[in-house]
């Protein structure tokens, strides 16, 4: 009986760990400077159109994408509707342009590989090619 409990406990812990990994967001860039590290506020600024001291261009996933929902919740700290209303204000007052939207995570990796300075967010489990640099992790 004790064995069964231990196995069950180990299984549950494994579930929790893998679920945490799936919920973790990383921010990845195609940048020559591998030493760049951003904090949460800097990532938020970058994806809300702010000018960072690095030559980075944000790319985003579409509004219905689960990774985007996690990114909004854990990193930006705003609801999707607030983000959409913010970009509506920026667009129609000529202040800033929303990041380019890329259909899914696989295509984000492809886009990052071919565009210097491009910066996107991905779930932690995605395999990151060596050429790319992880600038931030939400864990």
């Amino acid at each position: 009986m004790a064995r069964v409990l231990i196995i069950l406990l180990a299984y549950c812990l494994g579930m929790v760990q893998s679920s945490n990994a799936a919920e973790t967001i990383i921010v990845v860039a195609n940048t020559a400077d591998k030493s760049i590290q951003l904090n949460r506020q800097q990532v938020r600024n970058l994806f809300m159109g702010g000018a960072l001291p690095y030559d980075l261009d944000a790319v985003a996933l579409p509004p219905e994408n689960h990774t985007r929902v996690l990114f909004n919740t854990k990193v930006v700290g705003l609801t999707e509707s607030r983000i959409q209303s913010y970009w509506a204000q920026m667009r129609f007052t000529g202040r800033k342009k929303a990041p380019v939207e890329i259909k899914n995570e696989e295509l984000v990796v492809e886009y990052l590989m071919t565009n210097v300075g491009a910066t996107g967010y991905l779930p932690a489990g995605v395999a990151i090619p060596e050429e790319l640099t992880v600038l931030y992790s939400s864990k």
Partner: peptide
């Protein structure tokens, strides 16, 4: 704050 986006009702709550 909203003088330049008065007409864009989607931009405010």
């Amino acid at each position: 704050n909203y003088s330049d986006s008065l007409d864009v009702g989607f931009a405010y709550p």
